[in-house]
Design a binder for these strands. Structure first.
Lengths: 244, 244
DNA sequence: CGTTAGTTTGACGGCACTCAAAAGTTGTGG
DNA sequence: CCACAACTTTTGAGTGCCGTCAAACTAACG
């Protein structure tokens, strides 16, 4: 199950955003063979299982192919704090390179298959392939930009809108309709990620439904007015009809 | 002013946390020579000037030697949002590697001197020096861990405590007393960074002074009870003496 | 000494948290 | 297929923290 032929892997990887790493760098067929030779695949990882946990030795980075992974920590009072959701094409684990120990947990939120890239082997290969090295830097760099999305003190509705639109964009990148979201994560996890409570998350969604912005059906969410959602996500003030 | 002799540079770099990059990798003297050959220095950068701004082409990463730099963006309503403060030994600019364009501004908050590391030259050198490549990955990785410090929905006093202790730790790393802070940034900038308003920041500091946690003298802040501060910074609940 | 920017303090209101309970959903065994 | 338990989600009532608006106060600088 772990080793596939090069041909199979090519097919497997073609749907993956990671393919920047695999294909877009003028690597020779022999180089590609080597790169794919070190990638391991893990499939049908069950909900609740972990890719890694706090304190685990760092050995590999992970690329999500299908499903959804959350990275989180637990604070002193035992509360879970979600730091990010990682879906198709996203990478995980870069934060642990330096101390060679993971500093957060990565748990499956929706049944997953991932590519496992053993870090040391990857680096060994990168030494011989400058274009691979460049690619790795690009992919790491991309992970930095994510945190610019959610201003800290922003009102809840703004953050929720930004969140929904972010999911929408990610879906669209994979050729799926941008206005129809099937949330992989619970309200609790959304709330934790956005920095408020479950109740607030729930109230917010029903409120936004009443306003005609979205339609909520359990974990299905339809974005009815992406224009307005974008306005709310951007605009710090003037977010609602102010009584003058 | 830009080019110094190798001997001068060694002296200059010896106080810099970046010296992991420069010295701790068994590079041969010749390698070191080459590495230092591409580093440029900029000194006495005045307050308010920029290392780079949104949209600037990405050409280099920066290492702060002295002073303080803030990275920030401005949102749709023109409000400034501070994303981080970078002081001695910190690196800046990694977020821009991929799109090759800076996505935030970097402004001097306190008179600065920095090392400028031209990215392309650095990568070219890294191709020949595997240990330098490793080092670069380490340094980038370190930048990721920073965001784990400030949980989003945490109460203001908790975040402020965490902030002060973070500054304290950084000072200590450089052999300066950990309990005596000379803030480089304004209240406004602190507030923006922590996600609340100037007024709240100000009120908070005076409140914490009354509680005996700190002593405030303008931009001088003495940490009087680091034990208690640590408690507050960690603990989500039970932060104050609860009436039972 | 006057002007200006930064900081502090006060009063008031609203958004989001807490506590609490109902309603809906999923899984398990009878 | 139903009943029951465990969990998730929703809704409600009350409170408190923090934001907004406004003004006084304090350096710093020309």
């Amino acid at each position: 199950m772990d080793s596939l032929t090069s041909g199979q892997l090519r097919t497997a990887c073609s749907t993956c955003t990671l393919n920047e790493l695999c294909w877009q760098h003028g690597l020779t067929p022999i180089d590609l063979e080597q790169l794919h030779g070190l990638v391991r695949h893990a499939e049908n990882l069950p909900i609740g299982s972990h890719l890694f946990q706090v304190g685990d030795k760092f050995t590999a980075v992970y690329a999500v192919r299908t499903g959804c992974v959350k990275s989180y920590t637990t604070d002193a009072s035992g509360e879970e704090q979600v730091h990010g959701f990682h879906m198709t094409g996203d990478l995980l684990g870069f934060d642990a390179i330096y101390p060679e120990q993971h500093r957060c947990n990565a748990a499956i939120v929706q049944t997953c298959s991932v590519c496992v890239l053993p870090y040391q082997e990857l680096m060994n290969l990168a030494v011989r392939l400058p274009s691979l090295q460049t690619s790795l830097m690009h992919l790491m760099s991309r992970e930095f930009s994510i945190n610019l999305l959610f201003p800290d003190g922003a009102p809840a509705e703004q953050r929720m809108s930004a969140f929904l639109l972010d999911l929408s964009r990610r879906q669209e990148r994979q050729g799926r309709p941008p206005y129809e979201l099937d949330l992989a994560m619970s309200r609790q996890e959304i709330a934790s990620y956005l920095g408020f409570t479950v109740e607030t998350a729930s109230r917010l969604l029903t409120k936004m439904q009443k306003e005609g912005l979205i339609k909520v059906k359990r974990r299905l969410i339809y974005l009815m007015d992406m224009e307005a959602l974008t306005q709310i996500a951007r605009h710090a003030s003037s977010n609602g009809p102010t009584k003058h």
